[in-house]
Design a protein around this nucleic acid. Sequence first.
RNA 1: GCGGGCGUGGCGGAAUGGUAGACGCAGCGGACUCAAAAUCCGCCGUAGCAAUACAUGUCGGUUCGAGUCCGACCGCCCGCACCA
Length: 1018
Amino acid sequence: MSERFDHAAVDARWQARWAAEGTFHADDASPKPKSYVLEMFPYPSGKIHMGHVRNYTMGDVLARYRRMTGHEVLHPMGWDAFGMPAENAAMEKGVHPGAWTYANIAAMREALKKIGFALDWSREFATCDPAYYGHEQALFLDLYEHGLVYRRESAVNWDPVDMTVLANEQVIDGRGWRSGALVERRKLSQWFLRITDFADELLDGLKGLDQWPEKVRTMQENWIGRSRGLRFRFRLAEAFGDHDTLEVFTTRPDTIFGASFAAIAADHPLALALAERDAALAAFADECRRTGTAAAEVETQEKRGYDTGLRVVHPLDPTWTLPLFVANFVLMDYGTGAVFGVPAHDQRDLDFARKYALPVTRVVAASADEANAPIHDEADAAPGILVNSRFLNGMGVEDAKAAVIGRAESEGWGQGTTVTRLRDWGVSRQRYWGTPIPIVHCAACGPVPVPRDQLPVVLPEDVTFDVPGNPLDRHPTWAHVDCPACGAPARRETDTLDTFVDSSWYFLRFASQPADKPFDRDVVERWMPVGQYIGGVEHAILHLLYARFWTRALARIGKLAVTEPFTGLFTQGMVTHETYRLASPELDGPPGSLWVAPSELEEGADGQLFTRLANGARFPVKRGRVEKMSKSKKNVVDPHAILAEHGADAVRFFMLSDSPPERDLPWSAAGIEGCSRFVQRVWRLTQGPQADVGADRALDREVHRAIAGVAADIEALAFNKAVAKLYGLVSAIEKAAPSAARTAAIRTLVLLASPMIPHLAEEAWAQSGGRGADRRRRLAGARPRAAGGRRGDDRHPDQRQAARHDHRAQGHRQGDAGGAGAGRREGGARARRGRAAQGDRGARPAREPRRVRTVAALALAAALLGGCGLRPLYAGGGAGPVAASLATIGVEAPGGRSGWLMRNALVDRLGQGAAPTTPRYTLQVELDDSIQGFGIRADSAVTRERRTLRARYRLVEAGQVLLDATAGSDAGIDVVGSEYSTIAAEQTAEERLVTAVADQIVARLALYVSRGGGGGTR
RNA sequence: GCGGGCGUGGCGGAAUGGUAGACGCAGCGGACUCAAAAUCCGCCGUAGCAAUACAUGUCGGUUCGAGUCCGACCGCCCGCACCA
């Protein structure tokens, strides 16, 4: 027997059934808790690559897991279909961008279906469909009508290769993010979205995104770059043309008496005006512009300036003037494009001052005594008190800032303000393959919105790409329309929207897609926000910031109540692969042609790698670094071939194995083979001999441990750990003799592994369904057992148990004990911050109320005790006689974890900060700790463990035993509630048991002591 | 320069402050087989016959106990970068 798992047949069978039965359709009207799991939708380049497979597998495991734990899951897929590659293909191959795109979509859709993702394909759409972008045009007009869209002439980043404008976010090191070409500056009339209006909101909103990676939040914070300071005007000593003042911005108004020069950017209006009369200045400014963007080595660039000869008047002393420079380090884009320099406290200003022999005056010092401590080559940025600063002397830096701002405002020469690095979002693109901007330009009326009933403005099909530039511009008829306002001949806007607009709201359209409007608000609000969003960290700023902005903009204009679109964000690592190069010193020179693809490798008997050249000769190959898969390095592995060979389940499993999901995953042939073996092992278990009778307590424990561990790991998106636990469970089952317990364990294994290897799981489940007690027909659509019935008490079973324990133990520190336990668990939860996969409404608050309820239960227990007439034995408080006696007891506990916990618990309860140095009494404690499994095995669902801790303790004085007694407690651990119900770690139970037993012991000791020590030993 | 992250076997990586190296890969030995594939069993940080000792980048500290917490340093990765 031991037939091998036939992945080709099984994969196809279940994929067809899931599609036919609509297994993964999300029901908007479901009463179940909603869970929206989303992976960043792909650009339809034509091929799926391993990065896609990894990304979507992670989301899929989570979606399937959520479905099994009783959630109504929305897990959609679509296509980010506008963009330049389609136009490039049109230029290179002569195909229409639309035809190219849709062909790619078809190919990629089939590929994704072969991996068996639990997607709701009924919601699929492509952003290049007028049925999508028409609604986008409507939303654009909504924003336009609310003043969040405007048009202005502006210097733009022009990509000369792609012949389009780029947003600041798309310029990387002075180059286009896609083409890599050096970006030029041009003046164009552009449409802008007022994202800067939302800078504060977007920044402040980050604080609430505690399930986002810290790194991404920091990147967005830095990108928005908010700084507070003073904006004020210098008066020019002599006016120049229209210019009689100069506005500057500073974050250090406190240092204003340390100013020794003012400087403006080469593009500053005043600099431009001056340059018209001064050829040398014009030349200098040109030079600044040239080096301005291109220089990556900005840090090393020399600080240079050009003295304009003008002087500005110090705002706090009309007799004091400063020279005005044009300087290469001043940016027109930030603040006002003008600064004043304080050399003593800013390195850049110091370098500049040294070069041009400007005065350096210290105005902040550690103390008044050091007011004239010299500044050498390093500016002093340390905080301190103000010196050499007239009315500011003696103030702290913050006080001085406030004082200067206050004075500026009262005297009217400046005001406190906030400046951000963030610019408004330029969305105009001179491209064909994008969403047409729904505006008509009329000579008489100006820009006029296209009336709603004329939307969508559809792209013309008959376009040519034989010459560079925008085909819409040169289309013979498309742009020529009558003005919607006055009827006169007018011209359509021929720019299209940045494709980042398309991806700024697609998650809303997934949640609701009526034909007549962008989305149905009620339905969207049922699903949103996305509970878990998964994608690459390369979108940390652009896409994620724009999507947050767009969502907030819709909220501001009253279209939506949601402000943050993504509650949980996870950024997964890349799939990498070893690289291989021809090993030849003489060929080491020119890069590019030396890479060897893995498929071209052969391995010699000695382990040496080589490749066959065209003439059949062997050529040695050396291993290179492990790098991101890329065509240029030839280290790409095509998912199609791997899927065909190993099947979807093995590939999925590999994507989750070994590396933590946030880190890079090195692809290896050996690794995927290992996963194939695992799939076959699981299959063999399901096909092997089964037994109907017989218990196996040890195996039960392994199963329970696996259920708890796998569930917790999936929740935390720690897939590699869940995989390891499944391996462990498989090993344990393989080693166990046939029994009813083992048969049940195999069924549990299938359930546990089903989110990862769904095809095998469905097949095995269907096979066993005929004989098992549970006749659910479709595993993927399975409802969790008893999920509804357990909602009434979402505390962990252990905690219910704990409450009973404390009741029994009659402890006097119940609150402490319970509180400490809860606090520890919370700490652990925090440690996994940002990964806890519980962003959906309803799920997240579980932790807090749980703790509150536990504490409340303990308080109730204490109150009941009081009502029974029992009074605390420590009536005298910490200074009472009982307490004093207890404090003289030295504790001897056994080693090991339980021993230490017990000793600490006792020392704590005996009122000792630490063990007494000269104990009068000795408390000897022995511990007996055991765990037993028990439970109802009938449907393998309800099974419990019981952990028991017993202590024998003796109180000894000078070798004489005064008291010899036992204490004990136990905890039930309800291991299987539904397939995935979580149990607390057995260690947690241990800690609670220790505290309970310690309470008993101390209570007994206190009773003994309070009775004067008589009363015998029992 | 600023911000963030990370240093654990041959490799990917485990480890609520509690037996470091789970699990996988690679490797070694064995079983089955005419042989191979597949599968199964065992070994697998370093040194040592062994008992044992030493081991989580380095040096300190906190703790009964530190890979984990704190401080300093070294190294690597990522992001931003003349931001006034």
